[in-house]
Protein backbone atom coordinates (compact mmCIF):
# COMPACT_ATOMS: atom_id res chain seq x y z
CA UNK A 1 0.00 0.00 0.00
CA UNK A 2 1.70 3.20 -1.12
CA UNK A 3 2.04 5.71 1.72
CA UNK A 4 1.12 8.69 -0.46
CA UNK A 5 -2.14 7.04 -1.47
CA UNK A 6 -2.93 6.35 2.17
CA UNK A 7 -2.09 9.88 3.32
CA UNK A 8 -4.09 11.40 0.49
CA UNK A 9 -7.19 9.48 1.48
CA UNK A 10 -6.57 10.34 5.12
CA UNK A 11 -6.49 14.05 4.29
CA UNK A 12 -9.62 13.77 2.16
CA UNK A 13 -11.48 11.72 4.74
CA UNK A 14 -10.59 13.78 7.80
CA UNK A 15 -11.46 17.09 6.19
CA UNK A 16 -14.92 16.04 4.98
CA UNK A 17 -15.50 13.84 8.03
CA UNK A 18 -14.85 16.72 10.41
CA UNK A 19 -17.58 18.72 8.66
CA UNK A 20 -19.97 15.76 8.93
CA UNK A 21 -19.18 15.73 12.64
CA UNK A 22 -19.92 19.43 13.07
CA UNK A 23 -23.17 19.16 11.14
CA UNK A 24 -24.27 16.03 13.00
CA UNK A 25 -23.49 17.63 16.38
CA UNK A 26 -26.39 19.97 15.67
CA UNK A 27 -28.72 16.96 15.78
CA UNK A 28 -26.96 15.55 18.83
CA UNK A 29 -27.26 18.74 20.89
CA UNK A 30 -31.01 19.01 20.39
CA UNK A 31 -31.43 15.29 20.92
CA UNK A 32 -29.55 15.45 24.23
CA UNK A 33 -31.83 18.15 25.56
CA UNK A 34 -35.22 17.24 24.09
CA UNK A 35 -34.79 13.60 23.11
CA UNK A 36 -36.08 14.49 19.65
CA UNK A 37 -34.53 14.58 16.18
CA UNK A 38 -34.89 18.02 14.65
CA UNK A 39 -35.55 17.40 10.97
CA UNK A 40 -35.39 21.12 10.21
CA UNK A 41 -31.65 20.98 10.90
CA UNK A 42 -30.81 20.03 7.30
CA UNK A 43 -32.85 22.99 6.05
CA UNK A 44 -30.94 25.31 8.38
CA UNK A 45 -27.73 23.83 6.95
CA UNK A 46 -28.94 24.76 3.46
CA UNK A 47 -30.04 28.20 4.57
CA UNK A 48 -26.61 28.87 6.08
CA UNK A 49 -24.88 28.06 2.80
CA UNK A 50 -27.15 30.39 0.83
CA UNK A 51 -26.84 33.21 3.37
CA UNK A 52 -23.05 33.02 3.40
CA UNK A 53 -23.01 32.92 -0.37
CA UNK A 54 -25.01 36.11 -0.63
CA UNK A 55 -22.98 37.86 2.07
CA UNK A 56 -19.66 36.87 0.53
CA UNK A 57 -20.47 37.13 -3.18
CA UNK A 58 -23.05 39.90 -2.97
CA UNK A 59 -25.19 38.62 -5.83
CA UNK A 60 -28.23 36.47 -6.37
CA UNK A 61 -28.83 34.05 -9.23
CA UNK A 62 -30.95 34.23 -12.35
CA UNK A 63 -34.15 32.72 -10.95
CA UNK A 64 -36.24 33.26 -7.91
CA UNK A 65 -37.79 36.36 -6.46
CA UNK A 66 -34.42 37.98 -5.85
CA UNK A 67 -33.07 37.23 -9.34
CA UNK A 68 -30.40 39.66 -10.46
CA UNK A 69 -30.46 41.58 -7.19
CA UNK A 70 -27.15 42.67 -5.69
CA UNK A 71 -26.20 43.33 -2.11
CA UNK A 72 -24.97 46.83 -1.19
CA UNK A 73 -21.88 45.23 0.38
CA UNK A 74 -19.67 42.15 0.22
CA UNK A 75 -18.07 40.62 3.27
CA UNK A 76 -14.70 38.86 3.36
CA UNK A 77 -15.30 35.11 3.42
CA UNK A 78 -14.42 34.59 7.09
CA UNK A 79 -16.85 37.29 8.16
CA UNK A 80 -19.57 36.04 5.82
CA UNK A 81 -19.13 32.52 7.21
CA UNK A 82 -19.54 33.84 10.73
CA UNK A 83 -22.52 36.06 9.91
CA UNK A 84 -24.21 33.27 7.94
CA UNK A 85 -23.72 30.95 10.88
CA UNK A 86 -25.14 33.41 13.40
CA UNK A 87 -28.18 33.99 11.18
CA UNK A 88 -28.59 30.21 10.92
CA UNK A 89 -28.43 30.08 14.72
CA UNK A 90 -31.29 32.55 14.85
CA UNK A 91 -33.19 30.42 12.34
CA UNK A 92 -32.59 27.46 14.66
CA UNK A 93 -34.11 29.46 17.52
CA UNK A 94 -37.12 30.23 15.34
CA UNK A 95 -37.56 26.50 14.70
CA UNK A 96 -37.65 25.83 18.46
CA UNK A 97 -40.00 28.73 19.04
CA UNK A 98 -42.44 27.87 16.26
CA UNK A 99 -42.23 24.10 15.83
CA UNK A 100 -41.13 22.59 19.12
CA UNK A 101 -42.05 24.80 22.06
CA UNK A 102 -45.80 25.16 21.43
CA UNK A 103 -46.18 21.38 21.14
CA UNK A 104 -44.01 20.72 24.19
CA UNK A 105 -46.05 23.14 26.31
CA UNK A 106 -49.17 21.23 25.39
CA UNK A 107 -47.49 17.97 26.34
CA UNK A 108 -47.77 16.64 22.80
CA UNK A 109 -46.24 13.34 21.75
CA UNK A 110 -42.61 13.46 20.60
CA UNK A 111 -43.65 12.06 17.23
CA UNK A 112 -45.73 15.18 16.60
CA UNK A 113 -42.71 17.39 17.24
CA UNK A 114 -40.79 15.35 14.73
CA UNK A 115 -43.48 15.81 12.09
CA UNK A 116 -43.71 19.48 12.96
CA UNK A 117 -39.97 19.91 12.39
CA UNK A 118 -40.32 18.15 9.06
CA UNK A 119 -42.97 20.71 8.15
CA UNK A 120 -40.69 23.57 9.07
CA UNK A 121 -37.95 21.99 6.95
CA UNK A 122 -40.25 21.95 3.92
CA UNK A 123 -41.32 25.53 4.48
CA UNK A 124 -37.70 26.68 4.78
CA UNK A 125 -36.59 24.82 1.67
CA UNK A 126 -39.51 26.19 -0.33
CA UNK A 127 -38.76 29.67 0.93
CA UNK A 128 -35.16 29.28 -0.24
CA UNK A 129 -36.37 28.08 -3.64
CA UNK A 130 -38.81 30.99 -3.87
CA UNK A 131 -36.16 33.57 -3.03
CA UNK A 132 -33.03 32.10 -4.63
CA UNK A 133 -34.44 29.93 -7.39
CA UNK A 134 -33.64 26.26 -7.99
CA UNK A 135 -30.39 26.81 -9.88
CA UNK A 136 -26.87 25.82 -8.86
CA UNK A 137 -24.86 28.38 -6.92
CA UNK A 138 -21.08 27.96 -6.92
CA UNK A 139 -18.73 30.03 -4.84
CA UNK A 140 -16.18 31.75 -7.10
CA UNK A 141 -12.74 30.11 -6.94
CA UNK A 142 -11.18 33.20 -5.44
CA UNK A 143 -13.68 33.37 -2.58
CA UNK A 144 -10.94 32.54 -0.07
CA UNK A 145 -8.81 35.38 -1.41
CA UNK A 146 -5.50 34.87 -3.17
CA UNK A 147 -4.48 31.66 -1.42
CA UNK A 148 -2.95 28.92 -3.57
CA UNK A 149 -5.55 26.25 -4.40
CA UNK A 150 -3.49 23.45 -2.87
CA UNK A 151 -0.28 22.61 -1.10
CA UNK A 152 1.70 19.63 -2.40
CA UNK A 153 3.76 17.37 -0.19
CA UNK A 154 6.26 14.90 -1.58
CA UNK A 155 5.99 11.56 0.15
CA UNK A 156 8.51 9.00 -1.04
CA UNK A 157 7.80 8.43 -4.70
CA UNK A 158 4.35 9.95 -4.57
CA UNK A 159 2.63 13.19 -3.85
CA UNK A 160 -0.07 14.28 -1.43
CA UNK A 161 -2.18 17.32 -2.23
CA UNK A 162 -3.93 19.19 0.52
CA UNK A 163 -6.39 21.55 -1.10
CA UNK A 164 -6.68 24.90 0.66
CA UNK A 165 -10.38 24.36 1.06
CA UNK A 166 -9.73 21.04 2.79
CA UNK A 167 -7.47 22.80 5.25
CA UNK A 168 -10.18 25.38 5.85
CA UNK A 169 -12.80 22.66 6.38
CA UNK A 170 -10.64 20.79 8.84
CA UNK A 171 -9.38 23.90 10.66
CA UNK A 172 -12.78 25.52 11.10
CA UNK A 173 -14.37 22.23 12.16
CA UNK A 174 -11.62 21.54 14.66
CA UNK A 175 -12.00 25.01 16.18
CA UNK A 176 -15.76 24.52 16.46
CA UNK A 177 -15.39 21.10 18.07
CA UNK A 178 -12.83 22.32 20.59
CA UNK A 179 -14.91 25.39 21.38
CA UNK A 180 -18.06 23.36 21.86
CA UNK A 181 -16.44 20.76 24.09
CA UNK A 182 -14.76 23.46 26.17
CA UNK A 183 -18.08 25.27 26.59
CA UNK A 184 -20.06 22.19 27.56
CA UNK A 185 -17.43 20.58 29.74
CA UNK A 186 -15.83 23.47 31.57
CA UNK A 187 -18.01 26.59 31.71
CA UNK A 188 -20.75 27.31 34.22
CA UNK A 189 -23.36 27.73 31.49
CA UNK A 190 -22.18 24.55 29.79
CA UNK A 191 -22.61 22.62 33.02
CA UNK A 192 -26.05 24.15 33.41
CA UNK A 193 -26.88 23.00 29.89
CA UNK A 194 -25.85 19.46 30.80
CA UNK A 195 -28.05 19.69 33.88
CA UNK A 196 -31.01 20.64 31.68
CA UNK A 197 -30.24 17.69 29.41
CA UNK A 198 -30.00 15.25 32.30
CA UNK A 199 -32.99 16.39 34.33
CA UNK A 200 -35.01 19.49 33.41
CA UNK A 201 -37.01 19.57 36.66
CA UNK A 202 -33.90 19.41 38.82
CA UNK A 203 -32.26 22.05 36.65
CA UNK A 204 -35.12 24.46 37.16
CA UNK A 205 -35.09 23.84 40.91
CA UNK A 206 -31.50 25.10 40.81
CA UNK A 207 -32.61 28.29 39.07
CA UNK A 208 -31.64 27.24 35.55
CA UNK A 209 -34.21 28.32 32.97
CA UNK A 210 -35.00 25.26 30.89
CA UNK A 211 -36.71 27.34 28.19
CA UNK A 212 -33.75 29.68 27.80
CA UNK A 213 -31.26 26.84 27.60
CA UNK A 214 -33.39 24.95 25.12
CA UNK A 215 -33.50 28.05 22.96
CA UNK A 216 -29.73 28.41 23.36
CA UNK A 217 -29.27 24.80 22.31
CA UNK A 218 -31.18 25.46 19.11
CA UNK A 219 -29.01 28.52 18.50
CA UNK A 220 -25.84 26.46 18.85
CA UNK A 221 -27.30 23.71 16.72
CA UNK A 222 -28.29 26.18 13.99
CA UNK A 223 -24.88 27.80 14.18
CA UNK A 224 -23.16 24.46 13.60
CA UNK A 225 -25.65 23.66 10.83
CA UNK A 226 -25.11 26.95 9.00
CA UNK A 227 -21.35 26.72 9.35
CA UNK A 228 -21.19 23.18 7.98
CA UNK A 229 -23.62 24.06 5.17
CA UNK A 230 -21.29 26.82 4.07
CA UNK A 231 -18.19 24.62 4.30
CA UNK A 232 -19.82 21.92 2.19
CA UNK A 233 -21.16 24.57 -0.19
CA UNK A 234 -17.72 26.11 -0.70
CA UNK A 235 -16.23 22.70 -1.47
CA UNK A 236 -18.90 21.23 -3.71
CA UNK A 237 -21.25 24.07 -4.63
CA UNK A 238 -24.91 24.48 -3.77
CA UNK A 239 -26.76 22.14 -6.07
CA UNK A 240 -30.16 23.64 -5.22
CA UNK A 241 -32.51 24.25 -2.29
CA UNK A 242 -32.61 20.52 -1.59
CA UNK A 243 -28.86 20.08 -1.32
CA UNK A 244 -29.10 19.67 2.44
CA UNK A 245 -31.30 16.59 2.21
CA UNK A 246 -28.58 14.12 1.22
CA UNK A 247 -26.22 15.52 3.85
CA UNK A 248 -29.00 15.45 6.42
CA UNK A 249 -29.48 11.73 5.79
CA UNK A 250 -25.76 11.21 6.08
CA UNK A 251 -25.64 13.12 9.36
CA UNK A 252 -28.46 10.96 10.72
CA UNK A 253 -26.32 7.93 9.91
CA UNK A 254 -23.43 9.64 11.73
CA UNK A 255 -25.34 10.19 14.97
CA UNK A 256 -26.77 6.69 15.06
CA UNK A 257 -23.41 5.18 14.18
CA UNK A 258 -21.69 7.15 16.94
CA UNK A 259 -24.43 6.50 19.50
CA UNK A 260 -27.50 8.72 19.82
CA UNK A 261 -26.93 11.66 22.15
CA UNK A 262 -23.19 11.12 22.54
CA UNK A 263 -20.97 14.04 21.57
CA UNK A 264 -17.71 12.05 21.31
CA UNK A 265 -19.69 9.38 19.45
CA UNK A 266 -20.93 11.94 16.94
CA UNK A 267 -17.43 13.23 16.28
CA UNK A 268 -16.11 9.71 15.88
CA UNK A 269 -19.06 8.77 13.65
CA UNK A 270 -18.45 11.77 11.38
CA UNK A 271 -14.76 10.98 11.00
CA UNK A 272 -15.39 7.28 10.41
CA UNK A 273 -17.91 7.96 7.66
CA UNK A 274 -15.71 10.62 6.07
CA UNK A 275 -12.76 8.23 6.05
CA UNK A 276 -14.82 5.32 4.76
CA UNK A 277 -15.97 7.43 1.83
CA UNK A 278 -12.42 8.55 1.12
CA UNK A 279 -11.00 5.04 1.18
CA UNK A 280 -13.75 3.66 -1.04
CA UNK A 281 -12.03 2.15 -4.11
CA UNK A 282 -12.55 4.33 -7.20
CA UNK A 283 -14.37 1.55 -9.09
CA UNK A 284 -17.08 1.67 -6.39
CA UNK A 285 -17.32 5.46 -6.34
CA UNK A 286 -20.87 5.44 -7.70
CA UNK A 287 -21.90 3.85 -4.40
CA UNK A 288 -20.38 6.66 -2.32
CA UNK A 289 -23.73 7.85 -0.99
CA UNK A 290 -24.47 4.35 0.29
CA UNK A 291 -21.25 4.03 2.30
CA UNK A 292 -22.64 5.79 5.38
CA UNK A 293 -25.64 3.49 5.65
CA UNK A 294 -23.76 0.32 4.76
CA UNK A 295 -21.33 1.11 7.55
CA UNK A 296 -24.18 1.98 9.88
CA UNK A 297 -25.94 -1.35 9.38
CA UNK A 298 -22.70 -3.26 9.81
CA UNK A 299 -21.90 -1.50 13.09
CA UNK A 300 -25.42 -1.74 14.47
CA UNK A 301 -25.41 -5.50 13.99
CA UNK A 302 -22.45 -5.73 16.36
CA UNK A 303 -23.28 -2.77 18.64
CA UNK A 304 -26.95 -1.78 18.56
CA UNK A 305 -26.23 1.26 20.73
CA UNK A 306 -23.68 2.66 18.26
CA UNK A 307 -19.94 3.07 18.65
CA UNK A 308 -19.90 5.14 21.84
CA UNK A 309 -23.56 5.03 22.83
CA UNK A 310 -24.70 3.65 26.14
CA UNK A 311 -26.70 0.46 26.05
CA UNK A 312 -30.27 0.63 27.32
CA UNK A 313 -29.32 -0.82 30.72
CA UNK A 314 -26.59 1.75 31.28
CA UNK A 315 -28.94 4.67 30.69
CA UNK A 316 -30.36 6.06 33.90
Amino acid sequence: MPLAWFLQNLVNGLSIGSVYAVFALGYTLVFSVLGILNFAHAAVFTLGAYLTYVLAVGEFGLNGLLAGATMPFKLPFALALLAGAVLSGLAGMAVEYLAFRPLRKRGADALLALVSSLGVALILVNLIQYLFGAEIYSFPPDVLGSLPPAILFHVGEGMVAMRTIQAVLFGVSLLLLIGLVWFIQFTKQGKALRAVAENPDTASLLGISVDTFTLGTFFLSGLLGGMSGTLIGVSFGLSGPYFGVAYGLKALAVIVLGGLGSIPGTVLGGLVIGLAEAFLPPELSSYKEAVAYALLFAVLLARPQGLLGKSAEEKV
Binding site: K191, A192, E198
Partner: peptide
Amino acid sequence: LARQSVRDNLELG
Protein backbone atom coordinates in the same frame (compact mmCIF):
# COMPACT_ATOMS: atom_id res chain seq x y z
CA LEU B 1 -26.90 15.12 38.45
CA ALA B 2 -25.41 11.65 38.06
CA ARG B 3 -23.20 12.52 35.10
CA GLN B 4 -21.47 15.47 36.77
CA SER B 5 -18.95 15.54 39.59
CA VAL B 6 -19.85 16.14 43.21
CA ARG B 7 -18.15 19.53 43.04
CA ASP B 8 -20.03 20.50 39.86
CA ASN B 9 -23.31 19.49 41.48
CA LEU B 10 -22.56 21.77 44.43
CA GLU B 11 -21.48 24.61 42.18
CA LEU B 12 -24.68 24.28 40.17
CA GLY B 13 -26.50 24.59 43.50
